[in-house]
Amino acid sequence: MTTLIKRIDHGDIRELRLDRAPVNALDPMLCAQLAETIRQAVADGVDGIVLSGGPKVFSAGLDVPFLLTLPDRNALKAAWEQFFLAARELAACPVPVAAALNGHAPAGGCVLALCCDYRVMADGPYRIGLNETRVGLVAPVGIQHLMRRVVGAHRAERLLVSGEMLEAQQALAIGLVDELTDIDSVPARALAWLEELLQLPRKPVLATRAIARADIVEALRPENIELDRFIDAWNDPDTQAGLQALVAKLGK
């Protein structure tokens, strides 16, 4: 089986690097391996995880061209379930996870970042956001909650409705990311944040973190994603038009 996640140990912290060229598009295999490597890292006793991607694209989100080739509703639903499984593993991870956003993070890439504890992004013309409306999709209630808890209800409404993608400096200004650095230093800064956090008393930190992040776990429960409704909308003419336009743009 092709390995799509690189594992790099930094002492008691493990970096999981998305490694599906060219843009780390999230297909079922990559999502399944991400969920498994998170579980394995915890089983191995790591104290923290860095989730990285790149170069220049952390993750381009779901692999839409692949999704459009799937033969039926069941296959499509199974593919989306793998993505949400990976997101839930990040959200429920019992040790802190720092996202190293060394490039663009649209849609599904942004969702993964929002499931992490801390987000370090490359400074420059790199963009992050939930741009679902621009390709004809509606972000589920639970995903919208992830954006609201980070940037506030009013700003989240504006971003979600417009599907706007923010450049790094804008994302920092509204708290969508926590820190900017040059692109080559992003994983190192994410690692440094974790190392500093791990200097604090471990049990109180983990217990406080679990309480503070309980809403993320709740937001990603199946009843807050309503995947069947999401799949029902997939074949809506507006949605299909948006998705086909996206694929045409990617092909240029």
Rank of each mutant, 00 (worst) to 15 (best):
L172M: 09
L62P: 06
D12L: 06
F230E: 04
V97S: 01
L137C: 07
T69H: 07
L101I: 11
G45R: 06
V42F: 01
V247K: 02
H10R: 13
L18T: 08
V111M: 12
P204V: 11
I5N: 00
R39Q: 11
A210I: 03
D184N: 13
A98W: 04
A156L: 07
N235T: 15
T239G: 01
I5R: 01
D182E: 09
A210F: 00
R88F: 00
A168W: 02
D72R: 05
L198D: 01
I13R: 08
R213T: 15
G61W: 12
V205E: 10
D44T: 13
N102A: 15
A79D: 00
R221I: 08
P222S: 12
A35E: 03
D123F: 04
L246Q: 09
A219R: 02
I211R: 15
G48C: 00
L76I: 14
P106T: 14
E179D: 14
A92H: 01
P55S: 09
V205P: 06
P204Q: 04
C31S: 14
I128S: 02
T3C: 09
D228V: 11
R14D: 08
V95W: 08
T2R: 13
P71R: 10
P94D: 06
L76R: 15
E195Q: 15
P125N: 05
D184C: 03
A156W: 07
W193C: 06
L227T: 12
A241P: 10
A173S: 15
D19N: 14
L243D: 00
L30W: 02
E15P: 01
I128K: 08
D63T: 05
R88Y: 04
R134T: 08
D63N: 13
L18E: 07
K6M: 09
L159S: 05
A192G: 11
A92I: 00
A210D: 02
Q244A: 14
K203R: 12
D215I: 00
V150T: 14
D19A: 15
V177H: 07
P204L: 06
A100K: 12
L101Q: 10
G108V: 06
D228H: 09
V46Q: 00
F84L: 09
T239E: 01
Q40M: 04
L146D: 02
R209E: 00
Q199Y: 04
L159P: 05
R134M: 11
P22G: 10
P222V: 15
I38Y: 01
A241Y: 10
R127H: 14
I216D: 02
V161W: 06
A105W: 06
L246E: 10
P55Q: 05
V161N: 10
H104I: 04
F230A: 01
F66K: 12
D228A: 04
V120A: 03
D19C: 08
G136Q: 04
Q33P: 04
Q240D: 02
